[in-house]
Amino acid sequence: MVYVSERTIQIVAKYLESDSTKTEKLAYTAMGGDWTSYDDYLVICTGTEQLRHSRTINFFNLSKGDAPKLSAITLEEWAIVFRAIFTKSS
């Protein structure tokens, strides 16, 4: 969990290398975006299977109709955001 002055963010990291149970795991993660009591639910995706053709990112971001707090980004995108947040506060 990340607490900032205006909001709270639940961060979930997903790493998948194989395609075996991907759909089930992704569905439960997306549902967490609806269930969370925090202001935002951020899924950070990494791993070869997760990032193939941006399918996982697209799946999560298209799930916003059912889970409006849900957003998904890559680990590389998170690194840029993280640096920006903590560079400002230093």
Rank of each mutant, 00 (worst) to 15 (best):
E49D: 06
F82R: 09
G65N: 12
S18T: 04
E6I: 05
W35L: 15
T48I: 12
E77T: 09
V43P: 10
L26K: 09
T46M: 07
S37E: 14
S5L: 00
L70Y: 15
I44G: 11
G47D: 12
Y15Q: 04
A67C: 02
R52A: 15
L42Y: 03
I80N: 10
T74F: 07
E77D: 14
K25D: 02
T8R: 02
Y38C: 07
S37I: 15
G32N: 12
A72M: 05
V43H: 10
S63W: 08
N58G: 00
H53I: 13
A67H: 09
I80E: 12
M1R: 06
A72K: 04
N61H: 04
C45F: 03
Y41N: 01
I80H: 12
A84D: 09
W35T: 15
G47S: 11
E24L: 11
D39R: 05
T74I: 09
G65W: 05
E76Q: 14
S54D: 12
K64G: 07
I85K: 02
V2A: 02
L51M: 15
I57T: 03
K69P: 03
D39I: 05
L75T: 14
L75E: 15
D66W: 11
A79I: 02
F60D: 02
W35N: 12
S5P: 00
Y41M: 02
I80V: 15
V4C: 07
S90C: 00
A84N: 13
T46C: 06
L42D: 00
Q10T: 04
V2E: 01
Y28V: 07
T8V: 06
E24A: 07
G65C: 04
L62Y: 12
E24Y: 09
A72Y: 03
S89K: 05
N58E: 07
R55H: 12
G32E: 04
L51Y: 11
S54V: 05
E6G: 07
D66G: 15
D34A: 13
G33T: 13
L62A: 14
Y28A: 10
K88P: 00
R52T: 10
A30D: 11
E17L: 14
S18Q: 03
K64R: 15
T36A: 08
K88I: 06
E24P: 00
L70T: 04
L26P: 03
V2L: 12
T36M: 13
V81S: 07
V12P: 02
Y38E: 09
V12N: 11
T48S: 13
S89Q: 10
S37F: 12
L42E: 08
C45R: 11
L51H: 09
E49R: 10
L42V: 06
K88T: 00
L70R: 13
D40G: 03
D66L: 01
T74R: 03
G33S: 14
A84S: 09
D40T: 02
T29L: 14
M31I: 14
K14E: 13
R83F: 09
A67P: 13
A27F: 14
N61L: 01
F60A: 06
K88F: 02
T8Q: 01
L70S: 09
L70Q: 10
K22I: 13
D34V: 05
R83W: 08
A27K: 15
L26D: 08
E49N: 10
K22A: 13
A67Q: 10
A84W: 00
L70H: 11
S71I: 05
T36N: 07
V4Y: 00
T74E: 01
